[in-house]
Every structure is written in C-alpha cells, then in structure tokens.
Computed example of a mutant assay.
Amino acid sequence: MHSFPVTIYYDETDLGGIVYHANYLRFIDRARTDWVGGLGIDQNAMRAAGTIFVVHRIEADFRAPARLDDRLVITTRPLSVSSARLVLDQQVLLGDCCLFQAKVTIVCITTDGKPRRLPPALRTIGENA
C-alpha cells in the first residue's frame, strides 16, 4: 500500500472551511501519480511514446469532511489488474478515520484514443493484488 501526505490549505476549502468536494479527486489523482512514479513508470516517456493513462471509472463515497489545516494521508492499494485494466482502492484518511473512499479503474490508451495494454510494471503487481 502506498501513502501520500496532504495538508489542507485555504484555497482547497469552501466558505465554511470545509474541503470542496472536487478536491478529493485531485488528492487521489496526485497520490496515484506518486504511486505510479514509485513503480518506476515515467508518464512523460509513456506519452512521448504515444500511450497515456486515463481514468475509466470512479466510484466515490464521501464519508466525513476534511477541514482547513487537516493533515491527511491518501492511501492507494491495487485491488485487481489485468493486461488492460487496473482497479485501485484509494482512501483519504484523517488519523484512523476514512473521510473519502474511491474505487478507481485505470486503463491505457494511445494518444489517438485506441486501447493499449498496461505497462509491464503495472501488470506484474497483479500477482500481489
């Protein structure tokens, strides 16, 4: 499981000091990018070679609000992987409390929009998912 720290700043909140709902998607996206980079996958090199990651599906549950100055941890854990699809569990945690949880399905496409197999570094994590 991968962990990614996030501190909530003023610009990420609404007038009530609560995190604006769309920012949770930004947080989990940053955590996924950090996780993929930690696997040794260079997304700039992938794009230069004509392949990119895209989110195919997100199932999200908002459980409790995060607030200004909260120090959160976003966890990323693979649930399943095939040659063409990766499903992740991502959680936004404040201490032991899960504030937000998402099941995210990632696929690869060419820069022309055609399906492409996942990189080998991601396909091999399926043995450990």
Rank of each mutant, 00 (worst) to 15 (best):
H2A: 02
F4Q: 04
F4E: 07
F4V: 05
P5K: 04
P5S: 02
V6A: 04
I8L: 00
Y9P: 00
E12G: 03
T13F: 00
D14L: 02
G16A: 14
G16F: 05
G16T: 09
G17W: 02
G17R: 03
Y20H: 14
Y20W: 12
Y20T: 06
A22W: 03
A22M: 03
A22T: 11
N23T: 00
N23K: 03
Y24Q: 02
L25N: 13
L25T: 06
R26Q: 10
R30W: 06
R30C: 03
W35K: 07
G37I: 01
G38C: 05
G40D: 05
D42C: 08
Q43S: 11
N44V: 15
N44A: 15
N44Y: 14
M46R: 08
M46I: 09
R47I: 09
R47F: 11
A48K: 14
G50I: 10
T51I: 14
T51R: 15
I52R: 09
I52A: 10
I52C: 09
V54H: 08
V54P: 09
V55P: 04
H56L: 11
R57N: 15
R57P: 02
I58A: 12
E59D: 13
E59K: 11
A60M: 10
F62H: 15
R63P: 00
R63L: 15
A64Y: 02
A66F: 00
A66I: 00
R67W: 01
L68N: 02
D70P: 01
D70H: 04
V73F: 05
I74G: 06
T76M: 06
R77K: 13
R77P: 04
P78R: 02
L79S: 08
S80T: 13
S80R: 15
V81Q: 05
V81R: 02
S83A: 13
A84Y: 09
R85I: 08
L86W: 03
V87P: 04
V87H: 06
L88S: 09
D89K: 15
Q91F: 00
V92Y: 00
L94S: 14
G95Q: 09
C97F: 06
C97I: 10
C97Y: 03
C98L: 05
C98M: 10
L99V: 02
Q101P: 01
Q101M: 09
A102G: 10
I106S: 04
V107P: 01
V107W: 06
V107H: 07
I109M: 12
I109D: 03
I109L: 14
T111Q: 08
T111C: 11
R116H: 12
L118A: 07
L118C: 06
P119F: 02
P119N: 06
A121H: 09
L122Y: 08
L122P: 10
R123V: 15
T124V: 15
G126E: 05
E127K: 12
E127T: 12
N128P: 07
N128S: 13
